[in-house]
Lab assay of single mutants.
Amino acid sequence: TETRTFTDEREARRFEQEARDNGKDVQVRESNGKFEVRVK
């Protein structure tokens, strides 16, 4: 599991989409204006 934290939602979404395109299981959590993207 890899976790990346972004402050920019667009960057978080781009990373999320890229991971999904690669067939990964992705979860995005938002807290305090930060976006935590977990990739399995």
Rank of each mutant, 00 (worst) to 15 (best):
T1A: 10
T1L: 11
T1R: 07
T1N: 10
T1Y: 15
T1D: 14
T1K: 06
T1G: 12
E2A: 07
E2H: 11
E2Q: 09
E2V: 13
E2K: 06
E2I: 14
E2G: 06
T3M: 11
T3L: 12
T3Y: 12
T3V: 15
T3I: 14
T3D: 05
T3Q: 06
T3E: 06
T3R: 06
T3W: 14
R4N: 05
R4W: 15
R4E: 04
R4G: 03
R4D: 02
R4P: 03
R4M: 10
T5M: 09
T5H: 10
T5S: 08
T5E: 09
F6H: 01
F6A: 02
F6G: 03
F6V: 01
F6Q: 02
F6M: 00
F6R: 00
F6I: 00
T7N: 10
T7A: 10
T7M: 10
T7I: 10
T7S: 11
T7F: 11
T7G: 07
T7R: 07
T7V: 10
T7E: 12
D8V: 04
D8E: 07
D8P: 00
D8G: 03
D8L: 04
E9G: 05
E9Q: 07
E9P: 07
E9L: 09
E9D: 03
E9M: 07
E9S: 05
E9W: 09
E9F: 06
E9A: 07
R10M: 12
R10W: 13
R10D: 12
R10V: 12
R10S: 13
R10K: 13
R10I: 11
R10Q: 13
E11H: 05
E11K: 05
E11G: 03
E11W: 03
E11S: 07
E11L: 07
E11I: 03
E11F: 03
E11T: 06
E11V: 05
E11A: 09
E11N: 05
A12T: 01
A12M: 07
A12N: 01
A12P: 00
A12V: 03
A12R: 01
A12L: 04
A12H: 00
A12W: 03
R13Q: 07
R13N: 05
R13Y: 07
R13P: 01
R13K: 09
R13V: 05
R13M: 08
R13T: 05
R14D: 08
R14I: 11
R14H: 08
R14L: 12
R14Q: 12
R14G: 05
R14K: 12
R14W: 07
R14S: 08
R14N: 08
F15D: 02
F15V: 04
F15Y: 12
F15N: 02
F15P: 01
F15H: 04
F15C: 08
F15K: 02
F15A: 05
F15S: 02
E16L: 07
E16P: 00
E16H: 02
E16F: 08
E16S: 08
E16W: 09
E16M: 13
E16D: 01
E16T: 05
E16V: 13
E16A: 15
E16I: 14
E16C: 14
Q17M: 09
Q17N: 08
Q17K: 11
Q17S: 08
Q17V: 06
Q17L: 07
Q17I: 06
Q17Y: 06
Q17P: 00
Q17R: 11
Q17H: 06
Q17D: 06
E18Q: 11
E18C: 13
E18A: 10
E18L: 11
E18W: 15
E18T: 09
E18F: 10
E18R: 07
E18K: 08
E18D: 09
A19T: 04
A19R: 04
A19D: 01
A19P: 00
A19M: 15
A19S: 09
A19K: 05
A19E: 08
A19H: 05
R20F: 04
R20Y: 05
R20L: 10
R20D: 01
R20Q: 05
R20A: 04
R20W: 05
R20M: 07
R20E: 03
R20N: 04
D21L: 13
D21V: 09
D21R: 14
D21E: 12
D21P: 00
D21H: 09
D21W: 08
D21A: 14
D21K: 13
D21F: 09
D21Y: 09
D21Q: 12
D21S: 12
N22A: 15
N22T: 09
N22C: 12
N22M: 14
N22D: 10
N22P: 02
N22L: 14
G23W: 04
G23R: 03
G23M: 04
G23P: 00
G23N: 06
G23I: 01
G23K: 05
G23A: 04
G23Y: 06
K24Q: 10
K24D: 06
K24V: 07
K24L: 14
K24G: 07
K24S: 09
K24I: 08
D25T: 11
D25W: 14
D25E: 13
D25V: 11
D25S: 10
D25C: 14
D25L: 12
D25A: 09
D25F: 12
D25H: 11
V26H: 00
V26G: 01
V26Q: 01
V26W: 02
V26N: 00
V26R: 00
V26Y: 02
V26E: 00
V26K: 00
V26M: 02
V26D: 00
V26I: 04
V26S: 02
V26P: 05
V26A: 06
Q27T: 14
Q27N: 10
Q27Y: 14
Q27M: 12
Q27L: 12
Q27H: 10
Q27G: 04
Q27A: 10
Q27V: 13
Q27P: 00
V28Q: 02
V28G: 02
V28I: 11
V28N: 02
V28E: 01
V28T: 07
V28F: 15
V28A: 03
V28L: 11
V28D: 01
R29D: 07
R29V: 15
R29H: 12
R29Y: 15
R29A: 10
R29F: 15
R29I: 15
R29W: 14
R29S: 12
R29K: 11
R29G: 06
E30M: 12
E30P: 06
E30S: 08
E30W: 13
E30V: 13
E30D: 06
E30L: 11
S31T: 13
S31K: 13
S31N: 12
S31A: 12
S31V: 15
S31Q: 11
S31I: 15
S31E: 12
S31L: 14
N32Q: 08
N32L: 06
N32E: 10
N32C: 08
N32S: 07
N32A: 07
N32G: 09
N32P: 04
N32Y: 07
N32M: 09
N32I: 03
N32D: 11
N32T: 03
G33Y: 01
G33M: 02
G33N: 05
G33C: 00
G33H: 04
G33F: 01
K34V: 15
K34S: 09
K34D: 05
K34P: 01
K34C: 12
K34G: 08
K34Q: 12
K34E: 10
K34M: 14
K34T: 13
F35P: 00
F35N: 00
F35S: 01
F35I: 09
F35A: 00
F35D: 01
F35T: 03
F35Y: 11
F35R: 01
F35K: 01
F35V: 04
E36F: 11
E36H: 10
E36T: 09
E36Q: 07
E36N: 03
E36G: 00
E36R: 03
E36D: 04
V37M: 01
V37D: 02
V37K: 00
V37T: 00
V37F: 00
V37I: 08
V37S: 00
V37R: 00
R38V: 15
R38T: 15
R38I: 15
R38C: 14
R38L: 15
R38P: 02
R38N: 10
R38E: 14
R38K: 11
R38D: 11
V39S: 04
V39I: 11
V39K: 01
V39Q: 03
V39G: 02
V39A: 05
V39Y: 06
V39M: 05
V39H: 02
K40F: 15
K40I: 14
K40H: 13
K40G: 12
K40S: 15
K40M: 13
K40T: 15
